[in-house]
Design a protein around this nucleic acid. Structure first.
Length: 581
DNA sequence: GCCGTTTTCGGCCCGACTGTTTTCAGTCG
């Protein structure tokens, strides 16, 4: 059966072929449809099997013509229209994907003039020095293509937010020190807190932008200047990160902030809304004819469009605009709302610090409680605890709690575990040992290659254990390194609801597991979640911020996140939830 | 090709920058 990715690829390529032929408007329609298909959570083949052509046509951006093409793809795995186009222009579009500055028109020109059909062919003609001699091309175009190819081959270049946010904040602070800089924000996917970001967009207001641009392109760490103008410059840093700076007039700051924060889909939806209301929206403001009616702040902009303010993390055009229109946007959890951290490893297993060190670090960042969750014996590599050592650890926790109390510190260390879920769904520790803990977390660390059915049953069985309170990092993915294990999340969420089990949002920067779309599903299903750092050292505690970003992207409120609740409320919720089951 | 509070035809987001041109096409966000 054809996957959403594959179907989207066919549709997108049709758009690109039509673009090569300079056919107006159709390319956009195909591109849009491809994006819709790619973004679907459900399998398109499943949608078709359930509801037929009609169900496809009912999707936004997909009409009769594209629906029929999808039908053909699902039924035959092939698409005649696509094949016909590819026959007349036999280029491997996929191979060029991601090369900067190389769009359909250029690919077409290279094919017609030089017979280039794929990336390899392009590399060859570059080597032969044929590009620069082509009409419309020059030395620079050849250089840029070369660099673009090298970059793609190096691995695409999306950065894990948590890996580069510190660098970004440093640049931010450097620029803020310039006296010409008035207002400054980091916009783009960084502001939306996407789990990975492609580049960084910085927005500045200034009456005298030239010195800012001069400074920016010479900042330490800059290896290449890709654009330098009066209002826009762009550089590449040593670590491969692209950073753009834009200078905008003060009165346009809100509109520009909105525009450069994106997402692109959110912006397009806002612009279409503006047009419907008889306005025009661009990065300089909201205009009625020639007159600017809003755009100094984002708040006034949304208001003028008849919307309540939408937090950056929610701006993905996945329903937030409709909710804002009806004033039904949820009040998402804030960055200071956590009272505890429910996943912390110590030097009892593979952590770097003692229980007391972790506790004192948590106190310092304002938390009121933590749960100690060292690994269990199956993870021998991590010096996992058996029942005996777990009992001993409990004694140490009691001792540290007593010490803190004597010092008059209001703080509680809870006894817990990150218990391995074994292959058959049973627990790595005895029920007796688990029942003595305050909170039990359970997680998968082995047999990632089970079938979806087996993996789903395995985790469901863990949820059915009356001692298990939270499923840690429920999908096991590591961003940029390892995909989630195959598992049916809808079924797990249903089972979590049924059994009163909490799902974790692991805040470790390359985990962020659950991801935003699953968080939203939990919110909708009324399944509670925890946001935890998974800290293996006290320096990891600030990772909670990334978990909160993810929770906000998933529309979670304080009410959805149990460690935003006072200790007693949280503990009694966990007890009751499992008892009912 | 898609869409609809200007609806079943006639619009489709919009501006900056680059590299090549010598007024603009292509790409990007």
């Amino acid at each position: 059966m054809i996957s959403n990715q594959e179907a989207a690829k066919f549709i997108r390529e049709i758009g690109e072929f039509l673009e090569m032929k300079s056919i107006p408007f159709k390319p956009r329609a195909y591109e849009k449809a491809a994006e819709i298909i790619e973004g679907l959570e459900e399998e398109i083949a499943g949608i078709y099997n359930k509801g037929g052509l009609k169900a496809l046509e009912d999707m936004p951006g997909i009409g009769v013509s594209i629906a029929e093409k999808i039908e053909e793809l699902i039924k035959t795995g092939k698409l005649k229209y696509h094949a016909g186009l590819k026959k007349t222009i036999p280029v491997d579009l996929e191979s060029f994907r991601g090369v900067e500055g190389l769009g359909p028109k250029t690919i077409f020109k290279l094919y017609k003039k030089l017979g280039v059909k794929n990336l390899k062919g392009l590399e060859l003609v570059i080597k032969l020095g044929k590009i620069a001699k082509l009409k419309g091309f020059g030395q620079k175009s050849e250089e840029n293509l070369k660099k673009g190819i090298a970059f793609v081959k190096k691995g695409g270049g999306r950065f894990v937010l948590g890996d580069i946010l510190a660098d970004v904040r440093q640049i931010e602070n450097q620029l803020k020190k310039l006296k010409e800089v008035e207002k400054l924000i980091v916009a783009g996917s960084t502001r939306r807190r996407k789990e990975t970001i492609g580049d960084v967009d910085i927005l500045i207001t200034s009456k005298n932008p030239k010195p800012i641009m001069d400074y920016f392109v010479k900042m330490s760490g800059v290896v290449r200047v890709t654009a330098k103008g009066v209002t826009k410059s762009a550089v590449k840093l040593k670590n491969g990160l692209d950073v753009d700076v834009r200078v905008v007039p003060e009165e346009s700051f809100g509109a520009a902030a909105n525009y450069f924060t994106g997402s692109k889909d959110h912006n397009i939806a806002l612009r279409e809304r503006a047009i419907k209301l008889g306005y025009k929206l661009n990065e300089y403001g909201l205009f009625k004819g020639e007159k600017r009616i809003a755009g100094k702040t984002e708040e006034d902009l949304y208001q003028a469009l008849g919307l309540v303010y939408i937090e950056p993390e929610m701006r993905e055009n996945t329903g937030e605009i409709e909710l804002a229109e009806k004033k039904k946007l949820p009040k998402i959890i804030g960055y200071n709302d956590l009272l505890g951290d429910l996943q912390i490893q110590t030097n009892w297993s593979d952590g770097g610090n003692s229980i007391e060190e972790m506790a004192r670090a948590a106190i310092k960042i304002g938390l009121e409680y933590i749960l100690i969750t060292d690994h269990t014996k199956r993870l021998a590599m991590a010096r996992g605890l058996d029942e005996k050592r777990l009992k001993k650890q409990g004694e140490e926790i009691d001792a540290v709690n007593a010490r803190l109390e004597r010092e008059g510190i209001r703080f509680k260390i809870l006894k817990g575990t990150e218990c391995d879920i074994l292959k058959d769904g049973s627990m790595d520790l005895s029920d007796e040992a688990l029942s003595k803990l305050d909170i039990v977390g359970a997680s998968v660390h082995s047999y990632f290659n089970l079938t979806e059915r087996e993996q789903t049953e395995r985790i469901k069985k863990a949820m059915q254990n009356p001692n298990v309170d939270i499923i840690f990092h429920p999908t096991g993915r590591i961003i940029n390194r390892r995909d989630a294990y195959p598992v049916n999340m809808d079924e797990l969420i249903k089972e979590a609801k049924k059994t009163g089990t909490v799902m974790e949002i692991d805040a470790y920067p390359d985990r962020l597991d659950l991801k935003d779309e699953y968080i939203r599903k939990c919110v909708e299903a009324g399944v509670k979640m925890s946001v935890s750092s998974d800290a293996h050292s006290y320096v990891h505690l600030p990772y909670l911020e990334y978990g909160l970003s993810q929770a906000r992207r998933g529309f979670a409120t304080k009410d959805d996140i149990i460690n935003a609740w006072p200790l007693e409320k949280m503990l009694s919720f966990l007890k009751d939830g499992k008892k009912k089951y």
